[in-house]
Amino acid sequence: MSQTQIYLLDTYRGEITTRILSSGKEGARPWIALEDNIFHPQGGGQPSDRGWIGTIPVVAQRLPTIADLVLVTAADDTAQTALAHLTEGTTVTATIDLPQRLANAALHTAGHLINATAGRRGLTYAGCNHFPGQARVEFQPSGPVDSAAIQRDIESAIRDLIADDRPVHASASGDGPRTLVIDGLCEDSCAGTHVARLGLLSDFQIRSVKVKGDRVRVGYDVAHAGLVA
């Protein structure tokens, strides 16, 4: 079975009409897989997309037993019966929660900016979380940590990058990993969703810089332009 991952090709596409490629159950929970999949599953520190199949509320998921497909499962118990009635070959309209997608994309792109700028300040990437309200990038320091200086320097550098409005794009070569490219700054392997250019990031700020054991945690907030509350 071959599934096209539309979310890797276009962050901003919010709807698609496609066929159900496969369907089944994991325990008592029904799932479907779309031939043209628009949903980003949780991974790389980014949460799963939510949305609808027709009017059925759903959430994206990967299962270890079906690792080659992104699945769509019911977002709540009341939607399970309706989703279970959808079968292979049926044509459906899939819609993502686009404001949620773009908020997640902004957080993910900003995380890469933090990694790129912190790396020039003696910090080595160690992990990340791009969930709203929890977003942080973790590093291992190479020496003494001046939290205030790290916060000031990274925040200033990233605000300058946002003002430069550099393009952001991703590409994949054959069966190799997908590469996120921010012009003149970084080229990272990444399967997440991202903004089209840095000028679409709004209200960026470093929320905190904390030292936990041998880790430096850089917490941050950012929004996608046009979605600021």
Rank of each mutant, 00 (worst) to 15 (best):
R121E: 08
R121Q: 12
G122S: 08
G122C: 07
L123Q: 04
L123I: 03
T124M: 10
Y125K: 04
Y125E: 13
Y125P: 01
A126D: 10
G127K: 08
G127L: 10
G127R: 11
C128N: 15
N129Y: 14
N129M: 13
N129T: 13
F131G: 00
P132A: 11
P132M: 14
Q134E: 15
Q134F: 12
A135T: 07
A135I: 06
A135P: 07
R136S: 13
R136P: 01
V137P: 03
V137Y: 09
E138R: 14
E138A: 15
F139H: 01
F139S: 00
Q140G: 09
P141R: 03
P141L: 05
G143P: 00
P144E: 10
P144M: 08
V145N: 04
V145F: 06
V145C: 04
V145L: 07
V145T: 06
D146M: 03
S147F: 04
S147Y: 02
A148H: 08
A149N: 12
R152T: 15
E155R: 11
E155V: 03
S156I: 03
S156M: 10
A157E: 14
A157F: 04
A157H: 10
I158Y: 00
R159V: 04
D160G: 12
L161H: 04
L161Q: 05
L161S: 00
L161N: 02
L161P: 05
A163T: 10
A163H: 06
A163I: 05
A163N: 01
D164K: 09
D164T: 08
D164G: 02
D164F: 03
